[in-house]
Design a protein around this nucleic acid. Structure first.
Lengths: 237, 237
DNA sequence: GCTTCTTGACTTGCATGCAAGTATACAATA
DNA sequence: TATTGTATACTTGCATGCAAGTCAAGAAGC
C-alpha cells in the first residue's frame, strides 16, 4: 500500500555536459566575455570547457535559436553583433508582455490575500535594497535588485511561458546594458518609478500602473546611440 | 572592379539533415501524427527519417526547448501532453503580442502610402478566400487563409522577433485546434470579425481594432473542455 | 599586371561505438 | 505472500573519426 509517494531525487545537481556548455557559453556572451562579432569554433569551446564537440554542438544550436550565435555552415560561428533593430524589437516584445502581465496582476490584486501581502512586502524590501545600492554606488547590486523586482512582479502573473520569453528578450537588452554599466546617472529615477509602480498596484489603479511601467521600460531606448559610437565593432547594420 | 556583388547561392534548397529532422518531427507533432503523450526514441526517429541519431538529437533538443517534446534522461522522450494551462498561457502571450503589433500597425497606418494600400487589398482578397472556404465547407482551406490573414497583419508591424514568438505560441494552440477541425460552427463569426477588424484599421480606430481582435482571439478559450473529454489521453493535469 | 587554377589547412556535418543510467521481469529470500 | 536482490534489455550521453564544404595563398597561364 504505497500511499506515500516519495518524490524523485530531483537530481537538480546533475547537469549534463550539454547543459553546462549551454549555460557557460550563454553567460560568456551576456557578460561580453565573448564579444559581439567574435569568431568562435566548436573545437575551441570544447577545449575551453574540457569536453568533446558533441555537447558543445547541442548547446550552440540552442543559442543559435535564441539569436545569440550565428552559424556559418562549414565555416564556423560567431557571436551575433548587437543590432539596433533587434534590440528595439526585443524591447518592444518585453514591454508588451510585461505590461500584459502587470495588468493581470493588478486586476487580480487583493490586499486581503496573504499571497499579495507577502509579495507587497517583498517588493518593498527589494526597493530598499535598490536605494541602498544607489547610495553605495554599487551599480551591479542595483542591477541584480532591479532584475529581481521585475521578476517577482512577472511571477505574480503565474504565466511561466511569458516569463521565459521575457527572460530571453532580456538577454539581448542586457548586452547593451552591460556596456553602460558605469553610467549611474538615472538609477535614482528608475528606483523612484519602481516605488510609484508599487503604489499604483497597491491602489488598484491599472491605468496608472501600466503608464508608469511603459514609461519606465522605454528609458532603455535612449542610450544606444552613444554606446554604438563607443563600441562600433560590437554593432551591426 | 567587382561593383556588382553576386548574392550567394542562397542555398535554400540545401538543408542539413538536422534541419530536415527538426521540421519533420515538428510537423508530425503539430499534425498529431505523433500523438501527445506518445513515447518516442532517437533510434526510432533515426530509422524513420533515414539518418543517424546525431541530427535527430539536435532537432529534438530544439523541440524540447519549445516544449513540444519532453526529455526523460536515460529513459527516452515523449511528445508533451496538451496542458490546459500551457494552452492558456500561450494564448495569453499571443493575444498580448498580437494586440501590441496591431496597435503599432494602426498608429502607423496611412491610406496614402502604397505599402498600406497593397496590404489592404491583400487582406481584402484573403477575406474573400475565407468566405469561399466557408461556403464550400473546406475547413482546412479556411484555417490556411486565417493563418495568412493574421500573419500579414503581424508582418506589417515589422517586428520579426515578435512574429517568430507568435508563431511558436501558435504551435501549442494549433494542436488543440487540430482536434476541433471538423467543427465549422463559428467560422462565419470569425470571418465577420476579420472584416470588422480590417475596417477598424482602415478608419484608424485603434480602440475598436484592439477590442475586436481581443474578442476574436479569446474565442479559442471555449472549446477546450469538450476536446479534453473526447481525447483524455492527449491531456495532462 | 591580371585572371584562373590548384592545393591544403582549416571548418562543420554526420555516423558510429562504447559507457553509463533506468526500468522490468524474475529468482531468491524472509 | 510480500519483499528484496539481480540479470538484462533497453535507453540516452558523449567521444571520436571521417567526409565534405569553404577560404586563402600562391602557382600557372594569359
Amino acid at each position: 500500500m504505497n500511499e506515500i509517494k516519495i518524490s524523485p531525487p530531483l537530481h537538480e545537481g546533475k547537469k549534463t555536459l550539454a547543459e553546462q556548455a549551454y549555460e557557460s557559453i550563454r553567460e560568456a556572451i551576456l557578460t561580453l566575455h565573448l564579444e559581439p562579432g567574435q569568431d568562435i569554433y566548436e573545437s575551441e569551446l570544447a577545449n575551453m570547457l574540457n569536453m568533446s564537440r558533441t555537447p558543445i554542438r547541442e548547446a550552440v544550436r540552442l543559442l543559435a535559436m535564441e539569436d545569440l550565435i550565428e552559424i556559418l555552415p562549414q565555416r564556423g560561428m560567431k557571436v551575433t553583433h548587437i543590432s539596433e533593430s533587434k534590440v528595439e524589437e526585443t524591447r518592444f516584445v518585453r514591454e508588451v508582455l510585461e505590461i500584459g502581465a502587470l495588468r493581470k496582476v493588478v486586476e487580480h490584486w487583493d490586499e486581503d490575500k496573504p499571497v499579495y501581502q507577502v509579495l507587497h512586502r517583498e517588493l518593498q524590501l527589494n526597493l530598499e535594497t535598490q536605494w541602498q545600492a544607489q547610495a553605495e554606488e554599487d551599480f551591479a547590486a542595483f542591477l541584480r535588485a532591479d532584475e529581481v523586482f521585475h521578476r517577482q512582479l512577472l511571477h505574480a502573473s503565474g504565466n511561466m511561458t511569458l516569463i521565459s520569453i521575457v527572460t530571453k528578450m532580456r538577454y539581448h537588452l542586457n548586452r547593451v546594458r552591460m556596456l553602460t554599466l558605469n553610467e549611474l546617472k538615472n538609477t535614482e529615477e528608475l528606483i523612484r518609478e519602481h516605488g510609484e509602480l508599487l503604489a499604483a498596484i497597491q491602489s488598484g489603479d491599472t491605468a496608472a500602473a501600466t503608464d508608469i511601467l511603459t514609461q519606465h521600460l522605454r528609458r532603455l531606448k535612449v542610450d544606444i546611440d552613444a554606446v554604438k559610437q563607443q563600441y562600433p565593432s560590437y554593432f551591426s547594420g
